Computed example of a mutant assay.
Amino acid sequence: MLVGQESLCDFATIQAAVDALERLPSEEPAEIHILSGVYEESVRIYRSNLSLVGIGQVEIVMNRYARERDEHGNEIGTFATPTLFLGGSRLLVENIIIANTAGQGEKIGQALAVYAHCDLTVFRNCTLKGHQDTLFTGPLPPSPKRPTSKFGGVPLRERHARFRQLYQNCRIEGTVDFIFGGATAYFEQCEIRSLCRVEEGAVRPAYITAASTPQEQAYGYVFRDCYLTAAEDVPEASVYLGRPWREFAKTAFVHCRTGGHIHPVGWDNWNNPANERTVRYGEYGVKNAAELKGQRAPWTECTVEAGDMWSKEQVFGGISFFETGKLIFD
């Protein structure tokens, strides 16, 4: 299927193409190609076995935010805000910019660009733009932190046994916890760009990751050969590598390059010292590990050696991601 504004296209919007495919059996692979343009829409995809490929410069844009009010006057919440929602498995998203342009601040709150409630999924050559909570990698934790609250948001039709995602050559930007969730997610040669966090007129500390890795899951977030950059107005030593959204968070940076915006301590316990005993946070393949280790939080790892345990093959347990974008499942 082809999406675009030209008369030769099958559909003018991405969601219309998705809806047409979701009326068909999902066992057979399907492809949606999107011509250059800005598509102002929220896209929900429940289908599996789907490739979503941009041709030229393709941007999906929406501006929903957590403190937006619904028709009853209630806040819609974080998980009702994504520009793109993915709920299936065996998915490819390639060469697409996905943005939530709601902005930041106390009146906005969280605003998702991507809600990746999906398994066996590849994002390749994509740019994800937002501020707080740019990318959520499912699954949701078993329950919210506050007993009286609920997650809400986009209805979930499929509960995957595992959530495995690969991000290749992507650019992901944001301010607070802008990569968060419970998936086993591998970021390969990505630019992870921190933006300046401003709240109540003041610059605040920022956090790249907020993993909620399930206790029984071997891997959470792995960043391999990534580049941690920052916008010009981000202060030196103001950004933390991560803090745990849940107590068994796992995050590793392997052979990554970091800018001066990263705080020397590196990691934060989210105001709960008990998290220090249960998280697994580390940096591996660090040339100046001996010097850096003395600055980093003592409950995290920082080593010169990386080892084979952080290879893509090891993390995904024998699943191969074919270089052309076709997925092969062993």
Rank of each mutant, 00 (worst) to 15 (best):
N169S: 12
N169A: 12
N169I: 02
C170D: 03
C170L: 05
C170G: 05
R171V: 15
R171L: 14
I172T: 01
E173G: 01
E173R: 01
G174C: 03
G174F: 00
T175H: 00
V176F: 11
V176R: 11
D177R: 13
D177Q: 11
D177M: 04
F178G: 02
F178H: 02
F178V: 02
I179K: 05
I179A: 05
I179W: 00
I179Q: 11
I179R: 03
F180L: 13
F180K: 12
F180T: 08
F180G: 05
G181E: 00
G182L: 05
G182I: 01
T184K: 04
T184C: 12
T184N: 09
A185Q: 03
A185H: 05
Y186W: 10
Y186F: 15
F187Y: 12
Q189M: 12
Q189K: 15
C190W: 06
E191D: 13
E191K: 11
I192Y: 02
R193A: 08
R193T: 11
R193Q: 12
S194V: 04
L195P: 03
L195H: 09
L195R: 13
C196Y: 01
C196P: 00
C196Q: 10
R197I: 00
R197F: 10
V198N: 10
V198L: 11
E199S: 10
E200C: 07
E200N: 15
G201E: 09
G201F: 08
G201M: 08
A202S: 14
A202N: 14
R204M: 13
R204P: 07
A206M: 01
A206D: 01
Y207V: 10
I208Q: 01
I208W: 00
T209N: 11
A210M: 10
A210S: 14
S212K: 10
T213A: 07
T213D: 09
P214E: 07
P214Y: 08
Q215W: 05
Q215S: 13
E216C: 09
E216D: 15
Q217I: 09
Q217C: 10
Q217F: 00
A218P: 15
Y219F: 15
G220K: 05
G220F: 02
G220I: 07
Y221R: 09
V222G: 12
V222N: 09
F223N: 05
F223G: 08
F223K: 07
R224Y: 15
R224I: 11
D225N: 15
D225C: 14
C226R: 09
C226N: 08
C226Y: 09
Y227D: 15
Y227C: 08
L228A: 02
T229M: 02
T229Y: 03
T229R: 06
A230F: 04
A230W: 03
A231V: 06
A231W: 06
A231Y: 02
E232T: 11
E232D: 14
E232C: 05
D233P: 00
V234E: 05
V234L: 04
V234T: 00
V234D: 02
V234P: 03
E236G: 10
E236A: 14
A237G: 04
A237I: 06
S238Y: 01
V239N: 03
L241H: 05
G242K: 05
G242A: 06
G242H: 04
G242F: 00
R243Y: 04
R243N: 01
R243W: 06
R243H: 07
P244W: 03
P244K: 07
